[in-house]
């Protein structure tokens, strides 16, 4: 399958944060949900993909092209939404359109006005008077009005009410009717991903823990519950992030089948949520998380 985004062995070091030998690919024609806690490097990776940051070393290519020689061509084909407002605030949407429209060869005025009507956005009001939801809708309108092949969104649903979050997912479903389109977005709200994400990319502390088909996660991972006396030095190695209490233990396994073979009926296996996986991975050491995935 074709990859739209390809990051190979990327290194980037900041004060107090490092991305080491990071590789990632985003599949064409699908929605990839990008999850991980705060400050684990999600925004850095999105910035690297958008060429807002340059890697210290390693390769990044989009649509099979690199930024060095094809920067404008690549950006023509990307629609972007950031978690904070990046539109000029002291002007109206009509004026903002005048600024953004000429930048894109494939700008579609009809499509733009369709979204403006759908979102009920005022064209003649200053953008600074917009609510957070309206700003987000305005950004989304600009991202969707030039027939972008790749839509990158950083936390698009944060701070939005549940009703609009649903509407947004419907719009994304509509976009995905075209198998040439790809969506890559980061989020904290993992329940949004159940409705739309084909692949889940999970990172922790600058490390790529996994990219899996969404349904594959519940095939591989499971929450294990059992009595504490089942745990010893050997069996503990089967888990990441064990939580003990006086009444038993709860842990996450990355190999459901193996756990079932080892423990049989002595433990209960449950479907994990993405939040469970994030939580236990954070609890467990990074060593376990990577060596078992």
């Amino acid at each position: 399958m074709e990859n739209v985004v390809e990051m190979r062995n990327v290194n980037k070091t900041f004060k107090g944060f490092a991305l080491k030998d990071f590789s990632l690919s985003v599949k064409k024609g699908f929605v990839t949900g990008f999850i991980g806690g705060n400050g684990v490097g999600k925004s850095t990776i999105i910035k690297l993909i958008m060429n807002l940051l340059q890697p210290d070393s390693g390769e990044i290519s989009l649509f099979g092209l690199n930024y060095k020689n094809h920067e404008k061509e690549i950006k023509q084909r990307i629609g972007f939404v950031f978690d904070n407002n990046v539109l000029y605030e002291n002007i109206t949407l009509a004026e903002m359109k005048k600024i953004i429209k000429p930048a894109y060869k494939n700008w579609d005025d009809t499509l733009f006005h369709q979204y403006i009507n759908l979102f009920e956005l005022p064209m003649k009001k200053q953008i600074k008077t917009f609510s957070k939801g309206m700003m987000m809708k305005a950004s989304l309108t600009f991202a969707l009005s030039h027939h972008a092949e790749l839509i990158i969104m950083d936390e698009p649903t944060s701070g939005l009410d549940p009703i609009f979050r649903r509407e947004l997912l419907d719009i994304l479903h509509d976009i995905m009717q075209d198998s040439e389109k790809t969506i890559f977005f980061s989020t904290h709200i993992t329940t949004d991903l159940d409705r739309i994400a084909d692949y889940i990319t999970f990172i922790h502390n600058g490390q790529h823990i996994f990219t899996k088909e969404h349904y594959k996660i519940e095939e591989d991972y499971a929450i294990v519950k059992g009595e504490t006396n089942l745990l010893d030095r050997d069996t503990e190695r089967e888990f990441i992030g064990i939580r003990r209490s006086n009444h038993g233990f709860e842990a996450l396994t990355t190999n459901k089948q193996r756990t079932q073979n080892i423990f049989g009926d002595t433990v209960i296996l449950e479907k994990p949520t993405l939040e469970d996986i994030m939580l236990y991975t954070k609890k467990g050491t990074d060593h376990y998380a990577t060596s078992h995935s």
């Binding site: 807002l52 920067e71 904070n84």
Partner: peptide, 18 residues
């Protein structure tokens, strides 16, 4: 100065400009 906010840098650099 109008273009100096970091949000504007994000916008302009995400648009197809070098």
């Amino acid at each position: 100065a109008t273009d100096e906010k970091s949000s504007v840098h994000f916008l302009l650099n995400s648009l197809p400009y070098t």
